[in-house]
Amino acid sequence: MHDLFEFPADGAGLRRAFASFPSGVVAVCAETEGVRHGLAVSTFVPVSLDPPLVSFCVQNSSATWPKLLNATHLGLSLLGNHQEDAARALSTRNGNRFHNVELYRGATDAIFVDGAAAWIEGVLEVQVPAGDHAVVLLRVTRLAAPGEVEPLVFHGSKFRRLHPHNDEVSEIAS
């Protein structure tokens, strides 16, 4: 039998349990009325291939999310393992979230972080209330990936990098 560490099912306990699950770090950015806005999320999930949908969660208390809602398109940058500083800057509550972050513009309001592992441009499909967050579904309109950038991972309440791997590929049975 394994030793178990029980946590209360409150916010602090859930945060500790959720820290056991690694996730990618995604910048959600756009420009509205000539002002760039962005935030970082670690709750990104691919949802559907047909239609192409992705999701992420945003805290109801976010002051940035209402500004991003005014954009026609949102830019999602799946941050690379060298972009911890960008993730930290985009996570701050005060100050310039784009300090030392190289950006480029998409076809519309979408803004992207240069050097990311992948970029997704999309439009808001639906927003669903979920406790102290909103679950956002985004319909993908364009995407790109350079192919050689490893993702930045958030695990154990820290930013981490994947360990280098050898050329052997293991397949997961479906």
Rank of each mutant, 00 (worst) to 15 (best):
Y104W: 12
R105V: 05
R105T: 12
R105D: 09
G106W: 00
G106Q: 02
A107G: 10
T108E: 12
D109C: 03
D109I: 00
I111C: 11
I111F: 05
I111Y: 04
F112G: 04
F112K: 02
V113Y: 10
D114T: 15
D114I: 07
D114Q: 15
G115C: 05
G115Y: 01
G115V: 01
A117S: 12
A117G: 01
A118W: 04
A118K: 02
A118H: 02
I120W: 02
I120N: 04
I120L: 09
E121F: 08
E121R: 11
E121L: 08
E121Y: 03
E121P: 07
G122I: 01
V123K: 15
V123C: 14
V123Y: 09
V123I: 14
E125W: 14
V126M: 14
V126G: 11
Q127D: 11
Q127V: 14
P129I: 10
A130N: 11
A130M: 12
A130H: 10
G131Q: 00
G131I: 00
G131N: 03
G131S: 05
G131A: 00
D132R: 07
H133Q: 03
H133M: 03
A134T: 12
A134D: 13
V135C: 10
V135D: 04
L137G: 07
L137C: 02
L138Y: 09
L138S: 06
L138E: 09
L138G: 06
R139D: 09
V140S: 06
V140R: 03
V140E: 07
T141E: 13
T141G: 08
T141F: 00
L143P: 04
L143E: 04
L143M: 13
L143C: 12
A144C: 06
A144K: 08
A145H: 11
A145Q: 12
A145M: 10
A145P: 06
A145N: 07
A145S: 15
P146K: 02
P146A: 05
P146N: 02
P146L: 01
G147D: 04
G147M: 01
G147Q: 04
E148M: 06
E150D: 14
E150H: 11
E150V: 09
E150C: 11
E150A: 15
P151S: 01
P151A: 02
L152G: 06
L152D: 07
V153C: 04
V153W: 01
F154S: 05
F154I: 05
F154C: 03
F154H: 08
H155D: 07
H155A: 12
H155P: 00
H155I: 05
G156M: 04
G156L: 09
G156V: 02
G156Q: 04
G156K: 04
S157E: 09
K158F: 12
K158C: 13
K158G: 10
F159R: 10
F159M: 09
F159Q: 08
R160Q: 15
R160F: 06
R160T: 09
R161K: 14
R161P: 05
L162V: 12
H163V: 13
P164D: 05
H165N: 12
H165F: 11
D167I: 11
D167K: 13
E168I: 14
E168S: 15
E168R: 15
